[in-house]
Simulated scan of single mutants.
Amino acid sequence: MEGLIVSDANLVLYLHPSKSDKVYQAILRELSSLLFTFSEIFDGVVLAYKDVNFLDNCAKILPGVHPYFAVRLKAKFLLFSPRPNMLLEGKVVKLTQGSIHVIVLGFSSAVISEEDIREEFAYKTKHGQDVYASRSHKRHVIKVGTMIRFLLKSFDEEILHIFGSLIPNHTGSIHWLDKNLEDFTRIDRSVKKTRESEGESIMINRDSVGGESFPLYNVEKVKRSKKQRISEES
Rank of each mutant, 00 (worst) to 15 (best):
I117V: 09
H170C: 12
T146Y: 09
I159W: 08
M147I: 14
S134I: 10
G106R: 05
T146S: 13
S165D: 01
D116G: 00
V144W: 10
K138H: 01
L105A: 04
F107M: 02
R149S: 05
I142M: 01
G145F: 08
I148A: 06
F121Y: 15
H170S: 04
K126T: 11
T146C: 07
F163I: 05
R135V: 15
K143P: 02
L166N: 05
L160G: 03
Q129I: 10
M147A: 04
H137L: 11
D116Q: 12
S113F: 03
G128W: 03
F150H: 06
S173R: 01
T146Q: 05
H161R: 03
I103A: 05
G106N: 11
I162T: 05
H140G: 08
T171Q: 09
R135G: 10
K138Q: 12
K143C: 12
L152M: 04
I103K: 09
K143I: 07
G128M: 02
K124V: 12
N169Q: 14
L151C: 01
F121N: 07
R118C: 14
I103R: 09
G164D: 04
L105T: 06
E114G: 06
H137S: 14
E158I: 11
S173A: 14
R139C: 03
T171M: 03
S108Q: 02
D116M: 09
S109M: 08
Q129P: 03
H127Y: 11
G128T: 04
K138M: 10
L105G: 05
R135M: 14
S173T: 07
F121M: 07
G128F: 09
H127N: 12
I117L: 08
I112V: 13
I162F: 14
L160Q: 07
I167D: 07
I159T: 07
E120W: 00
F107D: 04
E120R: 02
L105Q: 04
V141Q: 01
S136Y: 06
D156C: 10
Y123V: 04
E120K: 00
L152G: 00
V144I: 15
I162G: 06
H137V: 04
K126M: 14
T125A: 13
L152H: 05
M147L: 08
K153Q: 10
L160K: 11
I159R: 10
G106V: 07
S136W: 02
E114V: 12
G106K: 08
F107T: 00
E115P: 00
L105C: 06
